[in-house]
Write a protein that binds this DNA or RNA. Structure first.
Lengths: 220, 220
DNA sequence: TGTACATCAGTGAACGCGCGTTCACTGATGTAC
DNA sequence: TGTACATCAGTGAACGCGCGTTCACTGATGTAC
């Protein structure tokens, strides 16, 4: 964690009671679903509360307004991101001895694929992508949310970097172009594939195709 | 133009009077600005009409509702796209004899860069990117807009393909990886750079860096 | 060309619904003795 | 442990604003003779 990221995460505010935290979580989970369906601006506080099983009063008792909820969701995203990345690293380390190189890369990448927009429980990937894009666009327009969102994205990229490095090394592959450019390209391809999938019926595994296109076995 | 694209463009409806077309254009131009600032859902019909210098009655006299306006904007985007692409091809053809190869590629690419989200008049690139993303997300959520938007994107990609091919040939460069993969990567890098720029103060010329990373002089 | 009339295009007032926000309240949870 | 009280957390009714939508209207544009 960089100092900036911890600063974003640690509000120097009084700690929340367990009950309060649970209410906030339920509201944020409900908001995720409603945002996916109607968009951040299209979602009413009423709708979010109904989906969470609360009244509107509860919402305003927990968040100053809708943007405060969005900010909390972005910050929760950072936390979830770290958990998911640790899981992916765990997968990589656990399956390292004795499996085919390509399999290993694909496994790690598919785990990573689940990073950015997180796949909690049974939520579909499509909804996750929609929410992520909604949060991004909303953050781009609201000045107070820009920095927190940028920090979130940077955290994701940082971890992608580590994962790709480790996965390629474990699989005995290397990039056919400069590392930084290759990483940016994969990151871009990943995001692009997600967005494109919103308009397709069945998702295409573009990321893996791209990895194969710009890597080769390490020459020894 | 593919049959599908002409089908999207040609509504078999009575032709509009010149005055009516002008009113629609003014409303659509105003909507572009308001959408960039507030988002499609956040923009009120009132706000759009005020920006265009009309009353709300005029709006409902021209569009059934807000989604009809969005659809018209997407379709206008297809038309604008073709015009811009022709311009880029013109640039390429005109400057083909007697300039340095790299210069030519950069020139053409920067012209293409202005394709997707169009830079009409003095509107900033930031606003154009915001609107484009807004339209995309909105189209992804509204079933009736998905197909038209997908057609629009496909038209863009088709033209990108042609432009890149010509530009590389004119500059004496070739890809270091399979053409289709290279094209997808560049497309993804282009979109990604635009979105990322929403969170940066000064835009980074990522696309050109990427082109250089995955091309080499043609071996003769 | 001029006049009379029909259609078109945008006006602006009006209606009603839904949403954000507030607040006095009540039951639940925690605390002191 | 039991009781009395304080604080906390969520309720639900109320208010008012703003928005989408409608519609009778008026001035502008076009057309027939």
């Amino acid at each position: 964690l960089t100092p900036e990221q911890t600063a974003v995460l640690s509000h120097d505010a009084p700690p929340l009671s367990a009950r309060r935290a649970q209410t906030r979580d339920r509201l944020m989970a409900a908001a995720t679903n409603v945002f996916a369906e109607r968009g951040v601006n299209g979602a009413s506080v009423e709708e979010i509360c109904e989906a969470a099983g609360f009244t509107r009063g509860a919402f305003y008792s927990n968040f100053a307004d809708k943007d405060a909820l969005v900010l909390a969701m972005i910050e929760a995203g950072v936390a979830a991101q770290y958990a998911a990345a640790e899981g992916a690293l765990g997968t990589l380390a656990a399956s390292a001895p004795g499996s085919a190189p390509e399999e290993l890369v694909m496994l790690t990448l598919s785990r990573f694929d689940a990073l950015g927009p997180r796949h909690d429980g049974g939520r579909s990937s499509r909804e996750a992508v929609l929410v992520q894009q909604e949060l991004m666009l909303h953050a781009a327009r609201v000045p107070a949310l820009r920095a927190p969102y940028a920090a979130f994205v940077q955290a994701c990229v940082q971890q992608l970097k580590g994962l790709i490095t480790d996965a390629l090394a474990a699989a005995g592959l290397e990039f056919t172009l400069p590392f930084d450019e290759a990483l940016d390209l994969l990151n871009a391809a990943h995001d692009h594939a997600e967005v494109t999938s919103l308009f397709l019926d069945e998702p295409a595994p573009t990321l893996q195709r791209m990895v194969l296109a710009i890597t080769r076995p390490i020459a020894r």
